[in-house]
Nucleic acid binder design. Sequence first.
DNA 1: TCCTTAAAGCAAACATCTTGGCTTTCGCGA
DNA 2: TCGCGAAAGCCAAGATGTTTGCTTTAAGGA
Lengths: 187, 187
Amino acid sequence: MATTRRPGGRSARVQAAVHRAVTELVVERGADQVTIPAVAERAEVNPTTVYRRWGSIPALLAEVAIVAEGGAPAPTGDLRADLADFAEWTLADLARPGGIAFFRAEVAADVDDRRAGLRECLKRTSATIEALLDRAREAGHEPPTLAEVMDRVVAPLYFRVVFSVPGTDAAYARHLAHAVSGKPESR
Amino acid sequence: MATTRRPGGRSARVQAAVHRAVTELVVERGADQVTIPAVAERAEVNPTTVYRRWGSIPALLAEVAIVAEGGAPAPTGDLRADLADFAEWTLADLARPGGIAFFRAEVAADVDDRRAGLRECLKRTSATIEALLDRAREAGHEPPTLAEVMDRVVAPLYFRVVFSVPGTDAAYARHLAHAVSGKPESR
DNA sequence: TCCTTAAAGCAAACATCTTGGCTTTCGCGA
DNA sequence: TCGCGAAAGCCAAGATGTTTGCTTTAAGGA
């Protein structure tokens, strides 16, 4: 989305201000309380500008969510450790202020708009996992499949965060990862 | 919510009409396009009535979602078969017209309102699974834990439906169930 | 430096949702 | 059957979000 036809000074400033405003408002009030007029006011930008550039709240949130996402930890080749780190990072990403709020907003959005945010999110996660598994293969391990990691690590974490299941912490995230990376572990 | 102080004819009629209208609109347009005025018009009821009785769209959707939910299949005691049936039913429930839409609406709702819908949903699912596991125990099996079923069957199904992961069908649901009920199965 | 024009700003019309005061209906117990 | 009162209906005011036509600003190339 940085590919605008005139990315220079003013547009960039407006975009930055709007992104910051969205993040702040999502954190403060939750994604469903964020309106375009509110964002515009916080960013000291004209509402019309936001309407014309982004069109809708879901589109705006999707863009901000993608930009805001931090990088996953680099895989070392130690499958067990890498998966555990990945799981912990995924949970941290969801649990960070506004993290799950962005997810909620994308989940709630209309079907057409949805694809942009959710598809992108899934693609990124898949790529991260694949990189991790490739790295493990290079190191001579026999890793689980992408689907297994999705089903047994990522999905439970999302599910538990969305439903606010108690006891969903870093240790549990690692536990899920360990269960899929070979020898299970009691807890 | 059926515990109103005057559940007789008119109130009941209004409630039924509103429920029907909500369901229809969710299916037709998606949950995020459903507004109280639209529901009221469809139900041929005064908007003020809906505002006063339900207050907000999330509250209304939560009530409708709970009422609309069909009953899970009765457990037979055959753990493997019961879990597979349960998984397939869960997926069917999510995939039914408007099924995931209700979930989306609840996920998106504000934190306070959310508890009502999501907590209830989780509680019901837990109870269903527990019943199934108890039945299996009676029959002499040694079933997995509630958390295991949640993490490895329910969570992946929700995740996959929300993200529209291809290949998420009844067979896959059963595959997930089988993987957790003892001997895994290739696919 | 100057010119072109993409993008931001402004203001007013517009649509829509929400709320409040009041009246009317009608379920339900006496 | 009658009367009370909970709940539904009506309408108008108010608030909020959205769109539109136009003007102004300032990147970026000539």
